[in-house]
């Protein structure tokens, strides 16, 4: 029970601990930035195979934003696309043996805080500050504290939903790996490497890393879009 499942500290700079979460996030950032630059370097009128994949992705994100938030809020499409791609890569990075950065409550809560700020800034911008503050007292003035609590609960549930899903998968996967290792040691002896943990967890990886990871990144993005669109209309 001591230690738990938290990220390990990689190195320390002037008293600030740099954990695995931060380094893996840097890695994802570098990969995404280099990929984006390489892919969009020489765009042609007639798309090649790589360019058509990129165009399909971009138009899918644009369509999703237009359908969910409405045509007038297309300015959010780049942010939502970045969020979706970053979260999908971050959740899938467990497949190549790195620790997903979303299995750290700091990452998910900071993303949820960004959503929270976006919701309220854009709500105040589209309705005016007075009108936006008045919308908390609707439909009745006595409901004001309930509405405020509901607004404050949004980022908490948004952050913890992603964190809980990814960390639940991580904990179950590590339990399965540990169990299979000790099972193969007790069945085959400790001289043979633990062969039972080679193939069996693959099925669970497909569910916990691929299905749940992609689904949760989609849901995080969708909920962000829905909350912002609701605050603005």
């Amino acid at each position: 029970m001591e230690g738990g499942f938290g990220p390990t500290v990689v190195f320390e700079v002037a008293g600030i601990q740099v954990t695995e979460t931060v380094t893996v996030t840097w890695f994802i950032m570098a990969v995404l930035i280099i990929f984006s630059i390489l892919v969009t370097r020489n765009l042609k009128k007639v798309p090649g195979p790589v360019q058509s994949v990129v165009e399909t992705t971009v138009s899918a994100i644009n369509n999703l934003t237009a359908q969910t938030m409405g045509e007038d809020k297309m300015g959010f499409a780049p942010y939502m696309g970045t969020l979706l791609i970053y979260l999908a890569v971050a959740n899938l990075i467990g497949l190549i043996g790195m620790r997903p950065p979303t299995a750290d409550v700091n990452t998910t809560m900071s993303l949820a805080m960004m959503t929270f700020v976006l919701i309220h800034i854009n709500g105040a911008r589209s309705k005016g500050v007075g009108g936006y503050l008045k919308s908390f007292a609707e439909p009745l003035a006595p409901l004001l504290p309930l509405n405020i609590i509901g607004e404050l609960a949004n980022p908490i549930s948004l952050g913890f939903r992603l964190f809980g899903n990814i960390v639940g998968g991580l904990v179950i996967m590590s339990l399965v790996y540990g169990g299979l290792e000790s099972l193969s040691t007790s069945l085959l002896g400790s001289s043979i490497p633990p062969i039972l943990s080679a193939g069996i967890p693959a099925v669970l990886h497909v569910y916990f890393d691929m299905f749940a990871g992609v689904l949760q990144s989609f849901i995080f993005t969708m909920l962000t879009m829905v909350y912002i669109a609701m605050a603005m209309d």
């Binding site: 939903r161 964190f163 909920l223």
Partner: peptide, 29 residues
């Protein structure tokens, strides 16, 4: 399917809260 997934994600919130409580009790008591 999209609306269903969204609704299920919101319905999942209470379960996730329970999971967080369980994780805190187990690992960060």
């Amino acid at each position: 399917v999209r609306v269903m997934l969204l609704g299920q994600a919101v319905a999942q919130t209470t379960g996730i809260y329970a999971l967080i409580i369980a994780l805190v009790l187990m690992f960060a008591n």
